Computed example of a mutant assay.
Amino acid sequence: MLITGRELLIESTFHALRAASMSIATVPISALAASPSAEAAAREWRGFLEFRPSQEAAKARPAHLLGEGGKPGWVYDLHWKKPRTTVDPIGCFLLRDIEVWRPGILVQDGQVVDDANLSTDVALSMARADAGFPSRFAERAQARRVDRPALIVAGPGHAIWGHWLVEFLPRVAIASRLLPPLREEWVIPLPHDTPVWVEDLLLAACNVRRDAILRYAPGQERLLFERAVIPTFCFSGEYTFHPYMREFYGSLAPASGAARRRLCLSRGGPALSANRPFAQRDFFEQEARRRGFEIIRPEELSLADQIVTLSQACALIGEYGSALHGSVFAGPGTVIGCIGHWNAIQMRLGEAFEQQGVYLTRGCLWPAAGRPMSIDASLEDIESFLDRVTSLLD
């Protein structure tokens, strides 16, 4: 069975380091937000405010799979990772005296705040793997005090498009809808290396002004907030999405006519090609063109043009990676085709947004010592993949 890159990180790094002598004290976020009522939470700034209740999750949907479980041909089946039947409530935790150390590492009274989320697990594993972190954690250096309340949303992957779409941007939307009076007050702490396009995304999707972004240098400075808003993620477990996810992105997609465009998202630029070699990329894109697909490089489009373009897709295909998470802007029934490694996120998105999935994983290698993640699919499998996608459009 497939193991995702995130699972590899958690399993191989987090659990191994957990057994080591170096430890980091953690405290559950629920223990810090134990106010008995929403009124008390808002008054004391300590508790949980619910935005949407627990709801039934989207049901698992079969997908077209080639390469799963060693089966020789295409199967139309459910993936072995099933979504949860219900999702937890979503909302915001209000906490006091929170230090921001790095994305996903929040500290109160010398303990890391643990919200039992995958993103926090990854942040903790990265902290444990950082040889310098224990000394910085122990020395309790002076933190930079910030008077304005914080809206804390970013975690590991703060520089990656897909993480913003799937994890961080919906958190901003939850807080903005739940706590509108604070929109003019709060600041959003982001590492200094966060790309400028994140500011564009926050402005376009959630009307977050650029002067609300507070840049800091993780590992060199810590921020201390007397008041902090920490929204939940918009999913439970391993990416079983709350129905609000679809509602939010539906509000951003422009009204347009029938979705008829066949789009192939290319990773063909020099910088994008190096870290994930795909020996047959030219053949893949050539054959996609022959079947009526437009080759799109998302990074060459403005944010507004990306959203409009993706909303017009009847089919969206490409290599494994963040770009395919742009499917959140596409409508129900869109065929999403992924060649190469993938994880449960894309399939869970397909279920939440009622989209069809086609996945080719045969001939794809996970990274290993001295070897990057790569795709080396046969020409026959690539043609079969494209034929399977187009068959769903006829």
Rank of each mutant, 00 (worst) to 15 (best):
Q142H: 13
V87A: 01
E285P: 10
S266Q: 07
A58D: 00
R227A: 05
G370A: 04
L151S: 07
Q142T: 15
C364K: 06
G340H: 05
A63S: 13
V328Y: 00
Q286P: 12
G326N: 07
W161R: 06
A40M: 14
A228R: 02
T361A: 12
A175V: 06
I90Q: 00
V335F: 00
E285F: 06
L379N: 05
G250P: 00
E247V: 10
F168W: 01
S12V: 13
A274T: 11
R183N: 02
S236N: 01
L124V: 02
M347T: 13
T390V: 14
H192V: 14
A271V: 07
R276T: 05
N343L: 03
E238I: 08
E11L: 15
F51P: 02
L17C: 03
T232D: 04
C364R: 07
E299P: 03
C364H: 11
A159D: 04
W164D: 08
A255L: 09
G333M: 08
A138M: 12
Q280L: 12
Q108R: 10
A31D: 11
I375V: 15
E380Y: 02
L94Q: 09
L316I: 05
I339C: 14
V229F: 00
D282V: 11
T86E: 11
M245P: 01
G104Q: 01
C314T: 11
P243C: 07
G67R: 06
L179F: 04
A138S: 12
V335Y: 00
R362A: 05
S374D: 12
T390Q: 05
R144I: 14
A40S: 15
I29W: 01
P53S: 02
T85P: 08
Y359V: 14
C206L: 04
D211N: 12
L203W: 04
A25L: 05
L32S: 04
P243V: 03
K81Q: 13
A271R: 08
I29T: 06
R145V: 15
A323E: 04
W74Y: 10
L224K: 10
R388Y: 01
F137Q: 10
G69V: 07
S54T: 07
W45I: 10
A16I: 09
P103W: 05
I339F: 08
W366F: 14
H79K: 08
G337P: 14
S251K: 07
I213F: 09
Q286V: 12
A271K: 10
L32C: 07
L263N: 00
R102N: 05
G73I: 08
F48R: 14
L214T: 06
A34V: 06
P254E: 07
E68M: 11
E285T: 12
F235W: 06
A255W: 03
S12I: 12
A217L: 14
A204Y: 02
K59Y: 00
I307G: 02
T85R: 15
K82E: 09
T194C: 03
G257W: 03
R291F: 08
C206Y: 01
A143R: 11
A41Q: 10
L310Y: 06
S12D: 09
R291T: 08
T361I: 09
V113R: 00
E247M: 05
A34D: 15
R52V: 00
V75Y: 04
M22F: 08
L202Q: 00
T194Y: 02
L263C: 04
I317P: 09
T13R: 12
L360V: 09
A154P: 02
A34Q: 13
V112P: 07
F248W: 04
I98D: 03
A40T: 11
C314E: 09
A31S: 13
W186I: 13
P195I: 12
